[in-house]
Amino acid sequence: MGVWQLLLVGLVMVLGLVGVLVPGVPGRWLVWAAMLWWSLHELSPAAWVLLVASTALLLVDQVVVWLLPPRRLRGTGITRRMAVFAGLGAVVGFVVLPVVGAIPGFIGGIYGTERLRLGGHGQAAASTREVMRAAGTSVLVELFACLVVAGAWLVAVLWT
């Protein structure tokens, strides 16, 4: 696979990760489609194993998100800025502490946004808990699964 195709696959994965944070964008499916495209062109046993594992992980992720309580976005104060900072926090956490760091990074991004908006620790912590109850958990679960898939792809590309 050429460098340009690898860059395009990586770009689609990044768009999928951003899409997880934007309502109405099929982020999970963009990440999976990028993995499918790469696997169909790579034609190695590792690529097929990653495709099967990614498919299974993303299907389990979808079931888990369906089982979580429905999102209650009204009245929680969730903004685009908060979603951006939460997503950036998850990505930074994922890089600093591979895989596991995405969770505290996501929550830290929400807390940081609320701390700037509200000014105090107590109010920011209470608001962060409310946001995580309302919508953060389902977004976090989906983002975490997509980060694992993208991270596995990146390791496979760098390994070969």
Rank of each mutant, 00 (worst) to 15 (best):
A134F: 11
A126D: 15
G105H: 02
T137F: 09
Y111E: 07
T113C: 14
E130L: 15
S127Q: 15
R115E: 07
F106D: 07
Q123T: 02
G109W: 10
E114Y: 02
E130F: 02
I110E: 03
H121G: 11
H121R: 12
A124M: 06
L118F: 11
T137K: 11
Q123Y: 00
F106V: 05
L116N: 11
G112E: 03
S127M: 10
L116I: 12
Q123G: 00
F106E: 08
Y111P: 07
E114S: 08
R115H: 14
V139C: 05
A125P: 00
E114D: 08
A124P: 10
L116Y: 13
E114H: 08
G136I: 04
A125F: 11
M132T: 09
G105Y: 03
G136S: 07
R129Y: 01
V131P: 06
A135C: 09
G120N: 11
R129K: 12
Y111H: 06
E130M: 12
T128N: 07
A126G: 14
A134K: 05
Q123R: 11
A126C: 01
V131R: 15
A126I: 01
A126Q: 14
A124Y: 06
H121T: 12
G120I: 00
A134D: 02
S138D: 11
T128V: 03
S127I: 01
T137I: 10
T137D: 02
M132G: 08
S127T: 03
V139G: 01
A126M: 07
A125G: 00
A135L: 00
A124C: 07
A124Q: 09
A135N: 04
